[in-house]
Amino acid sequence: MTDSCEMMEKTEEISFKRVSKDQKEAEKILRPATTFIQDAWARFKRNKLGLVGLIIIVIMLIFAIIGPMVIPYDYRSQSLDNAFKAPGAEHLMGTDNLGRDMFVRLAYGARISLACGFAASLISLGIGVIYGTISGYAGGKVDEIMMRIVDIISSIPSMLYVILLMVVLGNSLTNVFIVIGVTGWLGMARLVRGQVLSLKEREFVLAAKVSNVSNWHIMLKHLIPNAFGPIIVSMTLSIPSAIFLEASLQFLGLGISAPMPSWGGLAQEGISALRSYPYLLWFPAIFISVTILAFNFLGDALRDALDPKQN
């Protein structure tokens, strides 16, 4: 009896050894706590195409900002002696029909196109978020009417009323921003409305409501921040379409006025000399396409990173 008692005590000692705190921690099956942003960045880094897109965009931004300061030419000074110089050491990307350096014109074009992309998508972001939030939060009849308006506007090709608005407002850079921004918010409004519709049924909104938080406060502080991921993705994807639209407008002769260059305008000038001096078209065409491609890659990567629910 005493033997077995001793045995038991012994086994107890063996099986229930105290463990130190460190060991306890080591047993925990937990990954280090990450914030949403860190998590998203980790997912983003895995996407090679997205990284490439980001790098291209950063290079383009640097080119747009620093290019005009560094290149020893001016976008409008003409010298007919130097017209149609092929790309070489003196003029990196050649000169156009008036002897203007293409490289510096492309840098100014980058300013215009990128500014247009960002400004237009910011405008459509603003309108779309406000419209979508109100529509989704109000619900019922208001929502139905607001969304029917969106349906009606989106049934007309945006190019048509962009052209009409440009004709009415006249050619200027701010008008291009406004027109493209004002016509591009439909998708954003739909997206935000969808997000708000599902978010407003969640408990935290109910909790806010019962604690007498005002409707505006709920929309601004609770609903919009929670829909942030999809909003950012959609904004990134709307930048290339704004650049695309600006280039097409410029191509049709609407947009900013000469001599200020934009990529679309440069491409249009290039086409008229396509047969003899094709480089005048290739460079702007490559710049436009690569930038749009980069934004598309970035947008897709951001979608995977910020919107994990989709997978």
């Binding site: 191509f251 094709p278 396409s289 598309n296």
Partner: peptide
Amino acid sequence: TTILVSLPNFVIASGLMYFLGY
């Protein structure tokens, strides 16, 4: 398809024109 979406149609058109035409 991503490349086709990213190429503005005037780039495609003039590219075709240059290579097939000229």
